[in-house]
Design a protein around this nucleic acid. Structure first.
Lengths: 224, 224
DNA sequence: TAAAATTTTCACAGATTATACAAATAATTG
DNA sequence: CAATTATTTGTATAATCTGTGAAAATTTTA
């Protein structure tokens, strides 16, 4: 992510140029679109756009409509440019998943600061990919599991299995279901393999291994 | 669940007001507490709090201590507000069963999004896959049966049989029909086997076992 | 390529559940 | 009300399932 790609959408070319210049100076790559329709087209046909800056007032599709379209495809962060701070609109935008508002007129400093803040935030969130249940914490990204703050070593399959259990906590899982989700769908091995992995998981989890409950004649369930 | 009730705990009244305003605007009901002790009191004396938002830094009891107290009583989801993202603290919190962290300063969008995500998650967990008749609640996903709030243990076949009864409540079911639906179609055993299972089911259901009525010369019917 | 780690298979013991059967109980019928 | 028929219940047996340890197969690492 050397140069974050930013899509700037505004019907006024002067404003577009202004925003673009500030961002380019600050080390971002900028793509432009002159109206809502073009914005959606460009967004669909361009890879790895990391942020979209949308003017609210635009012909054809306004900023909110564009945001709505983009949200159907992606969770990319969106910053809205708005002439006056209208609270009602802001709420509407927030429910659409707009990340920030910048009110015109704005200083270049504000613009760049907000852009950087949003990017920092979304990147930070990516790293917060953890699941935590009953004292068991899985850091998915780092592939580490903590039991009561102590990290434990799990093999790949064990990790995947525990992950599946935690994601489906409280749900009874048949062996078949586990097989289809943790193993590849085309795995045709013995379902009893799961038993062995469950055994190992339980022992590695120590007393918290009891959270993996056996449902006789059915399968397993993770429950605190 | 018209308006989810949220308890917001922060010693700074400005921050409390800020959070409250955003949440109220987004359609939540907010209750406030100004310190940890008050939070625990309020939590104990208020019904149906669906989410607690806790500031970490507070006089008397800090956020983690409050979380610990609340966890002794309830599994209500908890979101922590923290000034700086301190990894060690996060781990500590996760093992206490904290569901989310929000780092100050945060955007209203982030706050509301996280709140909604947590509520969505916990509500989804409650298992929409339930059948409830006359004080008997079957959580199909979790494979648990409650009779007057108390869970009871059923074997696999008993569970299936009860499920069939509840799905077909009020309908007279011949033994043949039961056999074809609860047992495998290729089962050629004694139809009297059903009687034995019915017997066990009735006894495990306690007085609610009477809901399984005998239709003389025909079969059974589940009726409250 | 050998060694180590991981995954899978397998078999057997121990548990649990399902079924069959016989005796007891209840409902129906003439 | 007795004879008949169906259901309930308790118990013994059969069938099924799980936990475990160890060995075989596979993949990864050195």
């Amino acid at each position: 992510m050397e140069q974050a790609k930013i899509l700037v959408v505004d019907d006024e070319s002067r404003m577009r140029k202004l925003v673009k210049d500030f961002l380019v100076k600050s080390g971002f790559a900028v793509i432009e679109a002159a109206d809502g329709e073009e914005a959606v087209d460009v967004f669909m046909s361009t890879k790895d756009i990391e942020l979209v800056i949308l003017d609210v007032m635009m012909p054809k599709l306004d900023g909110y409509q564009v945001a709505e379209e983009i949200r159907k495809m992606s969770k990319v962060p969106i910053i809205m440019l708005t002439a006056k701070s209208d609270e009602r609109d802001e709420l509407k935008g927030f429910s659409l998943g707009v990340d920030e508002y910048i009110t015109k007129p704005f200083s270049p400093k504000i613009l760049v600061a907000r852009v950087e803040a949003v990017l920092r935030r979304t990147n930070a969130e990516k790293g917060q990919d953890t699941i935590s249940v009953g004292g068991i914490v899985m850091d998915i990204a780092a592939h580490i599991v903590y039991v009561d703050e102590e990290s434990i070593d799990l093999s790949y399959k064990e990790f995947e299995l525990l992950n599946y259990f935690l994601v489906n906590q409280g749900v009874a899982l048949s062996r078949e279901k586990i097989l289809n989700n943790v193993w590849n769908y085309d795995y045709f091995g013995d379902a009893r393999t799961i038993d062995t992995h469950v055994k190992k998981l339980r022992s590695k989890l120590g007393e918290k291994g009891e959270y993996i409950k056996t449902i006789w004649g059915m399968g397993y369930k993770f429950e605190v």
